[in-house]
Simulated scan of single mutants.
Amino acid sequence: MIKVGIIGAAGYTGGEAIRILLRHPKAEIVFAQSNSQGGKPVSDVHTDLLGETDLYFSENWHTDIDVLMLCTGHGEAAKFMQANYIPDEVKVIDLSHDHRLNQWTYGLPELNKEQISQTNRLANPGCFATAIQLALLPLAAAQLITAEVHVSATTGSTGAGQKPTETSHFSWRSNNLSVYKAFEHQHLGEIYQSLRQLQPSLSKDVNFIPYRGNFTRGILAAVYTECALGLEEAQQLFTNYYKQAPFVVFSDKNPDLKQVVNTNKCLLHLEKHGNKLFIISMIDNLTKGASGQAVQNMNLMCGLEETTGLLMKPVAF
């Protein structure tokens, strides 16, 4: 069994990691650390786990484990690593932004599967970044991003984290929609980094407009760019690129977000409109966009089949 410890286990990503790992046939949660909830039952905070586990949050942690997941806020993971000694043999997966840019191995399995399987220090991708990159990687691999890319993407309220803020409060979020960080979202850095890994000559802008949605979980990214390929050629390009990617699923029909919520899937749909290729990319921001992808990476790092413990069905209604 893979012994897993979680730092920052009381947040949304920590709770999702616990939920997934409780059903993982090859993993055992050794501790779920929380500075704010130490000593309390996990199910008091993650109420969906009532009756699922007797695990308690701990204030302390140790390195007698195989994998350490950092489910902390942005900036906190780097501080944790600087303040504490983690043996090289302990595999560390950082779910925050702290180590994504040219530091640790970037954990997008559809891009870096071989590198992921050989590393002990891994930066889990951002949620928006995952959805957008999976819409564009095949084009970059074929050197076909030759015009500006336009992205509109909407995320659920859980993407803002568990700590209440003005824009995550129910009375503000309900029946509401807003743009934030237009053209300046922090995930753009990792998006460019990955695209240029495949297409070093990339010089065109990725114009990204993020939206706060009035739902709790999921991301819908609508992406388009000029492309000379016909629809069938584009579909073949994407199919070939993702033939070894078990969580990328194609839909011939215009999909909806409930088809991916509670799963580790990315659902892609392609259309051609004149000279523009239009790509819809959908993920659950807490699973494929965070904790599910972290477990997928853990599987690869530990030599397991990457789908282990992750074959979850969406809740469609």
Rank of each mutant, 00 (worst) to 15 (best):
L257N: 06
I279T: 05
S36F: 09
P210I: 02
K265A: 10
P164L: 07
S178V: 08
D88M: 12
L68E: 01
K91P: 05
L257C: 05
T63Y: 15
E184T: 14
R217F: 06
L136M: 06
N299I: 12
F215I: 05
D205K: 13
G303C: 05
H269K: 04
K40C: 10
S43N: 11
E28H: 14
A147N: 13
Y211Q: 04
A78D: 12
F170L: 14
V179S: 08
S36H: 12
L195M: 08
P314W: 09
Q236T: 13
L195S: 01
D98T: 00
L311P: 06
H97Y: 14
T13D: 05
V151Q: 00
K40I: 11
A182N: 12
T225S: 07
A222R: 12
D98P: 01
P164W: 03
N207P: 00
D205H: 09
V42W: 03
S174C: 09
T47D: 09
T167W: 13
M301V: 12
A131H: 03
K204M: 06
D205P: 04
N176R: 08
S194M: 12
Y106D: 01
S34K: 03
Y241E: 03
V42R: 02
Y241W: 08
H273S: 11
N214F: 02
Q162A: 13
L21V: 06
L22H: 04
I219K: 00
T53K: 01
I132F: 00
L311Y: 13
G11H: 03
G189V: 00
Q118L: 15
F57R: 02
M1C: 11
E166G: 09
L101A: 03
E271T: 10
H62Q: 14
D66A: 10
A123M: 03
G8E: 06
L270F: 01
R100Y: 08
Y192V: 02
L177Q: 11
K91R: 14
G39K: 07
R23K: 15
A182M: 11
L304N: 13
L55E: 08
I132G: 00
N102A: 10
T63R: 13
T63A: 14
L68Q: 02
Q236S: 14
A17H: 02
W61H: 14
G14K: 01
L267D: 08
A140Y: 03
N35Y: 08
A17L: 15
I2V: 15
D64E: 15
D284A: 04
C71K: 01
L137A: 03
I280L: 14
S194W: 02
A131C: 07
T158M: 14
P41Q: 10
L22Y: 09
